[in-house]
Structure formats: structure tokens, C-alpha cells
Design a protein around this nucleic acid. Sequence first.
RNA 1: GUGGGCGUAGCUCAGCUGGUAGAGCACUCGGUUGUGGUCCGAGAUGUCGCGGGUUCGAGCCCCGUCGCUCACCCCA
Length: 421
Amino acid sequence: MTQYQAPKGVSEYFPPRSLAFEWVRETLVAPAKLAGYNLLELPIFEDTELFTRGVGASTDVVSKEMYTFEDRGGRSITLRPEGTVGALRAIIEHNLDRASLPVKIWYAGAFFRAERPQAGRYRQFYSVGIEAVGSDDPALDAEVISIAYEGFKNLGLKKFRLEITSLGDRQSRAAHRIDLLKYISTLDLDESTKERVKLNPLRIFDDKRPQVRLQMQEAPKLLDYLSDESRVHFETVQKYLQALHIEFEINPRMVRGLDYYTGTTFEFVHDLLGAQSGIGGGGRYDGLMEEIGGQPLTGIGFGLGIDRALLAVEAEGLQPSTPTHSDLYLIALGEMAKVQALITAQNVKSEGISVEIAFGEKVLKNAMKRADKNGAPFVVILGDSELSTGSVELKEMKTGTTFSVTLSSLPQALRQALDGR
RNA sequence: GUGGGCGUAGCUCAGCUGGUAGAGCACUCGGUUGUGGUCCGAGAUGUCGCGGGUUCGAGCCCCGUCGCUCACCCCA
């Protein structure tokens, strides 16, 4: 065993898998950019209170999963467990919500939760998120959902589902809560579950244990308590999704782990991932801006798990579209040739062609083997004869054919050859 | 925080009822001078996670410990 190991439960990506990770991240971000969302680069830590206020003290995330520490000034700092609250804080702090609404931003990066790791669950994980603040138009809900949907679809994923529900507005939930508590009080539950119910009775819908699920079969569902306004909003969102040919199922038992969600709420689940099947989720948060000191603006957003999306991609046997090799492999024989190789590589790269130089190779045969392993479609050898004539053989590895080009015209010749393949 | 499984070469793993370690892949070199893929040959590689115990002797048995992993709780 090596002396130093990465901290427990972190996900690390190195070649070649890091290329797939990068591709997943960019693919998930792309639809947001196309819809006019712009980058918001955020700190990875915030004042602890921001999360306890925003995410909600009753949540597991806040009550037992935060990486919290004291900085040198005695302030309580927490590594961000999710992205929405920090994004809204930045929007408020920098008055981004004074411009035309809705404010539409995206972000990507690491998040932290101090949980016991398992398949698809890490202590440091990566998400892509978007937030749209300042509009309660149901069309915005549909857009946000469609952006996530397009991202997963563009990865090539097939075996994922979209589940949606509405958590209603304040009135809807107050009415439901009374009946739900009444129902729950008749159930036979263990102590820790009763405690959870006290904090947020909706949580019990998420319990996976059969003895609890069974008892919850007949529980009153929030969807049946929606106010007229909430119900119309939810129905309109559904209508839009249908128009976009985005398939979904309504899951009245869906509960999100964060307290701020209201109204439209959704989750993307993948069928091949085991216990941690959620690859993304989000929803409206109509009281959150005010909660953390901003204007009373409504908003909606999502977080998509890059780690889990990558696992899903691999589970479906999909390949990233980005190649792991360079366009050209450049072999230099001798000291003089090495200088020329560096210069040639510079010229080739200026044409936007990727090139790798064979470093430290003395034997041509071995250099060729390496070229083959690299997978580059073209190879050029630079030796004494090439230096004296100023012309090189450009070899296409797949066919084994070579053609002679002058060093100065190599970038253009390569461009042609690559385009012609 | 609770429970199950597992820790042997860079990777995937084998190692029978205890006798101080092996395979495949990968890697390095070679199969006559500057041309790869296949094939053949040669080579390097391990404190068998760590500590203790039982034993003449432990990779194998016992205890502890650390780590990884899967699941529960919960979530991306």
C-alpha cells in the first residue's frame, strides 16, 4: 500500500476515464449554454449559517452531512453540500436580480457531504447545476426540465426516467400536513422514524423499508391537496412537457432531501445504477430567496450528478465521442531532429491539429510500437535524411500508406488528410 | 452511525485439507542496419494491507487494526 491515500470516499478521475468524465460534464452543460444560461463561478465554501438557513436544519444534509470547520478568524465555514443556496446568495449579493428577469446561470464543480460512501455516492462529488430566478412561468419549469433531459439524452442514455410531482404552495402543504400527521400517528413506527416525522413528515414517503412502505400505502398524498393555483401550474408544466415529447411519470411519493422545494419538483433516475439511482433532480424554491435575505422572487433549478451520469454511461456501454489519441505522432531520431520535432509540433498545433512527440525514443521500431499504441491516425518520422531534404513521409497508420510532403507544408497536408478520412 | 463481502505483482485474479508465491494482461529488451499491429524468445516486478497470537513452520488458522467495497439511513 502506498503511504498516502486520497481521503475516504472521494471520486478521482485520471486518464483515460477522466476524458469521459470531462465529456459528460461538457455534454450536460451544453444545453444550458444553448438556452442562454451563463456561468456563475462560485466559492466551494460558504458561511455555515447560509446552509442551515437555506437548505433547512431538519434535513439530513444539514444535520449530519456537512463538512464544517472553523477558519482562522473563528468563523464557521462549510464546504458546500449543494449549489442552489450559494448561487442565490451570489445573485443577491451582487444584485444580479436587479437586471432583467429571470436571472439564468449555470455552474459545475465539486460538492461535499460527509456520508458513508457507496456505489455512486461520494464525499466529494461533482454536479452540473442551473438556476433560473425571477419568473413563475410554468414554461420556465418546462425549459429547466428539458435542459436536463437533453443533457442526458445527448450522452446517449436510454435507460433513464423522469419523475415529477408538485409539492404545492404553502397553503397546499399546510392542509396536507394536518391530515398526514393524523394518519402517521396511527402507524407503528420506530423511534428514529418518529423523530424524522417531527422535523418533516413528508420524509417518511421516501423510506425504503417494506414495513414502512406498506403502512404508507393509504397515506394522504400531497398532490390531492394542491391549491387551484398550484394545480393549474403543475398541469400546465405537464402540458408543455408533452408538447416537447418529454416522457415523464408522476410520482406523488417523491420527496426531495432539501427543505426549500415547492411546486414543481422532479428527479431523473437511471435503472442500472443500484441503490443510488438518482442522476439528477431539482425543482422550484419559491420562498428561498426571501429566506436568505433577498427579494421575494421565485426560482427553479436542478443539479445533475456528473459521477453518476458517468456510471450510467458506462452501465449502458456508451463511449465518449472525444478521442483519446492525438492526430499526429511525431518520431524524432537524433538530437538535431528533436529540435525540428519541437518546431514542427508547434506549427502543426497552430493549425489546430493535436500532436504528440515521441520522447526519449532511440529505436525506431519501439517508437513505432508506441505510435501504434497511442492510436494516432498519422505518423511522421524525423531523422537525418528528412532534415537534409526538408521533406518527410506522412504515414497513415490504418492503411500503412505513406506520402511525401515538405516539412513546411505538413500542417496543411495533415489538415487535408484528416478532413478526408 | 449500523450491517455484509473483500484486501496476494502496475491491472484482473489463482494459490488444494498450513511447508516462506504463481497465471493472464500490461511493461522493458531482442528476433541483424530507419517503420507499428500478429507471432516467437528473454527480462524486471511483490515487506501476500498492518500489528499481534497459535505452530517446528502462516498468504492460508485466531484476535485486533486500517483500508476498500456493497447495502441500510439518506442523497447527486
